[in-house]
Structure formats: structure tokens, C-alpha cells
Amino acid sequence: MSDEARVPLLAMRGITMRFGAVEALVDVDLEVHAHEVVALVGDNGAGKSTLAKMISGVLQPDAGIIEIDGEPVTVPTPQAAAALGVATVFQDLALCENLDVTSNLFLGRELRSRWVRDDGQMEEVARRILRSLSSRIPSVRSPLSTLSKGQRQSVAIARTLIGSPRIVVLDEPTAALSVVQTAEVLTHIEQLRNLGLAVVLISHNMTDVRAVADRIEVLRHGRNNGSLDVATSSYEEVIAAITGAPTEPRPAQHAPLRSSTTAWPA
């Protein structure tokens, strides 16, 4: 463990990103080791998805470096990210409504036998994966347009099980899921950690974060605003880091945030 601990599997250093006048990210650092789940939290618009998209090759930072296994890399395209072993569940899911479940799972990574798609093989794998996620999907041949939001989310998550990624980025993977499904996704995340992957989990749900994350990285207005060990930090400390409030006073509504997936005290 200690060897792996020295060189993070994924490291982002000094990441800065502007959209016109908006400073989405300013000098942000993030490290994730193998066998580690890092939760990335922050208010709406804090820059979480923007950071995730850089790991996934969707956006390129204006400044800063990304390292994988200590080697600086560029991730110019999603294909490049996949080649580097990065799998991502995007916040807006990125699925094709007109295609069926199997096609979506393998999109961009289709199996072939000679020049033909190996549809049979893909369907078989798709079934096995969905069964392992105990997802409530009627058939791997269902077009996505006939699935519920939560079922689609299961498909998006199942995509991370194809290929053998080393780094998995999940941007609000449980946002549309039932309690049962959420529990399954959390179990899935734990499995990924046990397999030695590095996982970045973006979530507004503190219960989920506390359940699976080893470390919480807080972003606020596009800047690092604290790195907290899940085992030792209190709920209030996390909230304070997110909102920028001083640590002492508890936020007014400290009730279980289980159900409120987006709203944070301003």
C-alpha cells in the first residue's frame, strides 16, 4: 500500500480553466490513489463537472498538468482518455436514446469478429454485467427511450465495467436512483476500489459520500477548499468547507440531507 501511496494513480496539479469571464477552476489540485475513492463535493457551479471532464478528455485545461502513474499526460479526446484507462459516467449521462442497452454499453468500444460487429458476444456480456449490477432493466435489447431515468443511469454506470479501466469518474451517479439501486451503486464503487481502481465520486449526497469515500475533496468557487478524511471529519466540517462558513455554527437545516440531492444552504 505504501508504495502505491507515494505515486498517485491520478494527479491533477494547478488546473485552471476559464469560460470567457467565468473562472470555473483556479489552480486546483486533485490526487487519487489506487484502492481509493475520493469524493469531490461542492456547491452547484463549484467546478466539479468541469474538473471531471478534463480527466475524461472532454475539456482541456488552460493551465495545469494531469499525471497518470506519475507521468504527465495529455487527454485531448475521450478516446485518449479511454486508452489511458479512464472511464466516466457523465452527469448528463451521454447515452443514445435510439440505440438499445447493449449498443449503448459498447458504444465506441464495439467488439468485432473480423469486420463485422460481434453482436452476440456483446449482448452476452451486456447481460452478465447488468445481472451483476442487479439492475432493473427489462431487456438488453430495450431502446434507451423506453427506460426510466434510473434505468438509464444503471446503463451509464454499467459502461464503466466494460474495458478494464484503472480510473473511474462518476459524476452524480446516484442522482436518479432508488434507495435499493443507490445501495447497489455504492457496492459497485466499493468493488471497484477493492479491484485496485482509483475512483472519483462527485455527489451532493453526504450519506453516500460518507458511506464509500476515503477522502473528501471540497471545491468552492473553482478553488480547493479543504481535503477531509472521512473517518475523522464531522458532517459540519464538510458543510462548512462547502459553504465557506466558519467551522463552528451548524447550518440551520442539519436534518438528514439524504433526500436533498442538490440544495445546499447558500
Partner: peptide, 9 residues
């Protein structure tokens, strides 16, 4: 879904 296809590689 053009964007999704691009994100999927």
C-alpha cells in the same frame, strides 16, 4: 445523440 457519441469515443 451526437454529443453522447463523441463522449463515448
Amino acid at each position: 445523440n451526437r454529443a453522447a457519441a463523441a463522449l463515448s469515443g
